[in-house]
Computed example of a mutant assay.
Amino acid sequence: MNPNRFTVRPLLLAASAALITLVAACSAPAEDDPESSAAHTPVTVEHEYGATTIDHEPTRVVTFSTNWTDTLAALDIPITAEFVQKGYSGPNNHFEWTPDHESQIKVVDSLTSIDVAELAAFKPDLILAGYVGDQKNYDRLSALAPTIPVMRKGASVDTWEDITTTTGKIFGKESDAAELVTATQDKIDAFKADHPAAVGKTFTFAQFQQTGGVGAVNSTEDAAAGLLTQLGFVLNPKLAAENKGGATRSMISSERIDLLDSDLLVAWTLGDKSVYAKVPGWDSLTAVRDDTVVYLTNDNAPAFGVPSAPSVEYVIGLLDPVADEFA
């Protein structure tokens, strides 16, 4: 289990989280696409466990994380299979922001203990895994097919930019990937331009558990905080002070709910809003008083926690009405 996640990693990772959906597609690259019709050039991707070289253009791709799935679908790259974690893969195992694509879905209890025999049945020639837990799990997967775990050392989820750019390199769609990055950045810039009063406001991203436990992001190295920072918000300095250079999320005791006080609160539960009423001092939090809370469930939290280019637009849609409150 990822120590930087409050619960078993979603999509939410994954999102967010880095989060595995089975997709089957048989379409071949368009012959009139100069990038896809060109001979494949071997690509080496560096990652937390070393490097993986992809010698041939993959045709049977398996994804374990929604950010890879979203990006491949956005770039019209066929996916053979997606493994998704039970309870963390969206309504009917589909997230609202993921571009339409045909797929097979394999629901599993944990993305870090995949049954290799089940995976092998899909005959993958590339596994886009994201967070895999540890070296042992990576070795199990890479023995079956070239595998890409989290690329940034020390991270549990890669940035949407890195996922997009790497996808373009692997599949010979670098110009398409660059256009997707530019288009997504344009949306981020437009959000800040449309909501100048929101820029510089403090934010807290926290998960409220049924047991009463509360976990909150304490570093912009966390994917959710990184995205909110790109959108112009500033991490709650009281939580930032809790980071000691290790885990990017802190457990908050009921006596220190004041640590959650900020201009914007992104609050994530399993869906039961009655949890909030049990939080001591909930009604006194600035964001609760000012109606600047964004409420999330497992069905959309991965858009923040395992961000992809397609999920950025969805996140902006959730933040727009709250950002208007800062005008």
Rank of each mutant, 00 (worst) to 15 (best):
I163Q: 13
P91D: 09
A145N: 06
A327M: 10
T229W: 06
P310G: 04
A216R: 02
D272L: 05
T297Y: 03
N298V: 08
K244R: 12
P149H: 09
D158P: 03
P42E: 08
M151R: 13
D33R: 09
R140D: 12
V217M: 06
A303W: 08
E82F: 10
W160K: 03
V275M: 04
Y295S: 06
L285N: 10
A323C: 01
S311P: 00
V306P: 00
I20T: 11
V199G: 05
G305N: 00
L285T: 05
V62W: 07
G305S: 05
F203K: 01
D283I: 00
N2D: 15
L75Q: 10
D283S: 10
G200V: 01
P34M: 15
G133M: 12
L285Y: 12
R152T: 15
P34Q: 12
I77W: 07
H47Q: 10
D272W: 10
G154R: 08
F171P: 05
T204V: 14
L19Q: 14
E102Q: 11
L180D: 00
A117V: 12
G226M: 07
N236K: 07
T147V: 14
N2I: 07
V132H: 02
W282T: 01
V217A: 07
S156M: 09
H101Q: 05
E325P: 05
I105L: 11
W97G: 04
Y88F: 15
T52Y: 13
T204D: 00
T220E: 14
D186L: 04
G226V: 09
S254E: 12
L128G: 11
P78H: 13
A15M: 13
L72W: 13
T165N: 04
V43M: 08
K192S: 09
S250E: 15
D70W: 11
T164N: 08
R5D: 13
A18L: 10
P310L: 02
L11M: 04
P42N: 14
V84F: 02
W97V: 01
F326R: 11
A177I: 07
N300A: 04
A24P: 08
V266K: 03
D70P: 03
I163P: 00
I188T: 06
D189N: 11
D134K: 03
V157C: 11
F191G: 09
S175C: 01
V61N: 01
T66V: 15
S262D: 02
A155Q: 10
D299H: 04
A15H: 12
L264H: 04
F95V: 13
T112W: 13
S113F: 03
N92L: 09
G87M: 15
T165G: 00
D324H: 02
C26Y: 13
I20H: 11
V132E: 00
D176M: 09
V62D: 05
A247S: 13
P99M: 12
L141Y: 09
